[in-house]
Measured scan of single mutants.
Amino acid sequence: MSIQHFRVALIPFFAAFCLPVFAHPETLVKVKDAEDQLGARVGYIELDLNSGKILESFRPEERFPMMSTFKVLLCGAVLSRVDAGQEQLGRRIHYSQNDLVEYSPVTEKHLTDGMTVRELCSAAITMSDNTAANLLLTTIGGPKELTAFLHNMGDHVTRLDRWEPELNEAIPNDERDTTMPAAMATTLRKLLTGELLTLASRQQLIDWMEADKVAGPLLRSALPAGWFIADKSGAGERGSRGIIAALGPDGKPSRIVVIYTTGSQATMDERNRQIAEIGASLIKHW
């Protein structure tokens, strides 16, 4: 067993022997301040990774656009098919120029040779490549099948209805392509620590998230040296922004954090800054 596999296998073990965790309302004060600064709703939840206990939450059962955070769930569904012998990570998928959609920095470079399922998941999570996500959605049967996968996990809230990039439209009061912070946090925890996926697939999923290259201005910008984070960000229309993450000190994750916002007129930089400040408060009061 590799060191990384050992780390993920012992996530519940280490967490069980940690000192009790206590909620700190100071972080919620910052979440509410972010709402004021952005002029928009902000949803927040913080779960203990081992027990699933909610440590703090704000608007945990209000719907927010998922945006690209759905790509972690998508690759979880792909990995479940791999575990069941219905898919192979090494299978190569070929596609054409007509398949390319807006923001496809990886797939646009491989029109000639195609990409493997493993490479597509890596591109979808680490670079948020939209064509990679659409190609992977095709392998599982489309958005409705991802929703069905989530329902089978016990998540009857999260739903995907459309493809990239239309799913980022974020129309107010439109339930399409949305989740709730509580539902997303619980589902992410199941994917990373539950028995739904094999140990190898859980490790692969967290490795992809740990290698995320496009979430630097968010929670990662607030992390002290030595902290662990595996995350996936999302951005959408109407001032929408979000991030889902597993993080913790001492090089291992111990909490799940989900943050979503929508309806702001603020710039992307300002949305990023507010999420980073929430992260800084979380870490300060850990």
Rank of each mutant, 00 (worst) to 15 (best):
D161I: 05
C75T: 15
R238T: 10
I140W: 05
N168G: 11
A200T: 13
R238Q: 08
L73M: 11
C75K: 03
L135C: 06
D36A: 12
G76S: 08
T198D: 08
A40G: 13
L100E: 04
T126S: 07
A148D: 10
R241Q: 05
D48M: 05
T27Y: 02
R92S: 08
G39W: 09
R59E: 03
G234L: 00
L223V: 15
T138Q: 14
R220S: 04
T187N: 06
V42S: 03
M268Y: 06
A235W: 02
W208T: 03
E26I: 15
N50L: 09
N134Q: 03
G248T: 01
D36L: 13
S221F: 11
R81A: 08
L191S: 03
P25N: 11
E56R: 07
G251H: 12
P25I: 11
M209K: 02
N173A: 11
K213I: 05
E164T: 00
S128M: 02
H24R: 09
E166K: 13
P143G: 11
G236K: 00
I45R: 04
T262V: 09
T131M: 15
P172S: 09
D269V: 08
K213A: 05
N173E: 08
Y103H: 11
Q88R: 14
A246R: 02
S201N: 10
A211H: 15
L197G: 05
N272T: 14
G76D: 02
A148S: 09
R273K: 14
A276E: 06
L282V: 08
P25S: 11
H156D: 08
H151D: 10
V117I: 10
R241G: 05
G142H: 06
P181T: 05
R59Y: 04
A280M: 14
G52S: 13
G114P: 04
N152C: 13
D269H: 13
M127D: 11
V214N: 12
E169N: 09
C75L: 05
E87P: 03
V117L: 14
L150D: 03
A211S: 07
D99K: 09
V117M: 12
G242Q: 00
K190N: 15
N134G: 02
A211V: 15
G52Y: 05
L137S: 14
D33W: 06
A84G: 10
P249H: 09
G154Q: 07
V214I: 06
W208P: 01
C75D: 01
S264Q: 14
P143Q: 15
E119F: 03
E26Y: 13
A215F: 02
Y103S: 10
G236P: 00
D174F: 03
P65M: 00
G141T: 09
R189I: 10
N173D: 13
V101D: 09
V257F: 05
R162V: 02
A185Y: 00
T158Y: 00
L135D: 01
E61C: 08
I171H: 15
M209G: 03
T158M: 02
L192V: 06
